[in-house]
Nucleic acid binder design. Structure first.
Lengths: 95, 95
DNA sequence: TAAATATTTAAACGAATGTCTAAATATTTA
DNA sequence: TAAATATTTAGACATTCGTTTAAATATTTA
């Protein structure tokens, strides 16, 4: 969980995730979207992969990245507890 | 948005949020939950407040912290795009 | 096989982060 | 008013993070 939240923390990585909603892409195409070196993007992709937010599949000399349901499910379920709180707020403590 | 994700990134801060599901608490009671100095917790509370994830209300010499719907709504709406991509089941409660 | 292409790994470095102790501020109580 | 309590602010410091350039690995093409 720690690594998944960490992966989501960076703005560039969040942009990569949003970009991938449009469909799977190879590393080079992803890197083109950003004014940043390819090694930096490669590093961000690695962290997103560690957080189970994307999948990597090697296709020849390319590596195709796509969104991974698993990481999003983790975060989604963490938020469910709060969704319930806001629907049924508990009384404040007595002072 | 940046500051909200940043606030959620730290494990101690996430624990504070989960703790507050149980109801509003003053800073001292929150600090008791952790083996960490009060100034550190105070700092974490400040970041959570900046991220609109908690509210602070002064009551005498105490400061009462409670969950703030606003920050959670922000993150939740960001996730909606992915929920649609993955076709997550819709939650019973909408944030 | 050699060159070109795609991507990652390694090393370095400044900036940001989380923690601590000490001091400051605000409020309540004796 | 002085002391006690609650909390924050300030300053310091080690660790983590994001970025870069240079080098390495893997694959395809000429």
């Amino acid at each position: 969980m720690e690594i998944t939240f960490k992966a989501i923390n960076d703005p560039t990585r969040r942009e990569i995730l949003v970009f991938l909603i449009g469909g799977a892409q190879n590393a080079g195409e992803i890197a083109k979207q950003f004014s940043m070196s390819k090694p930096s993007i490669s590093h961000h992709l690695d962290l997103l992969k560690q957080g189970n937010l994307i999948l990597a599949e090697k296709k020849g000399q390319y590596i195709i990245y796509s969104l991974n349901r698993s990481g999003f499910e983790l975060v989604h379920s963490w938020f469910q507890g709060f969704a319930q709180y806001f629907e049924f707020p508990k009384p404040k403590i007595r002072l």
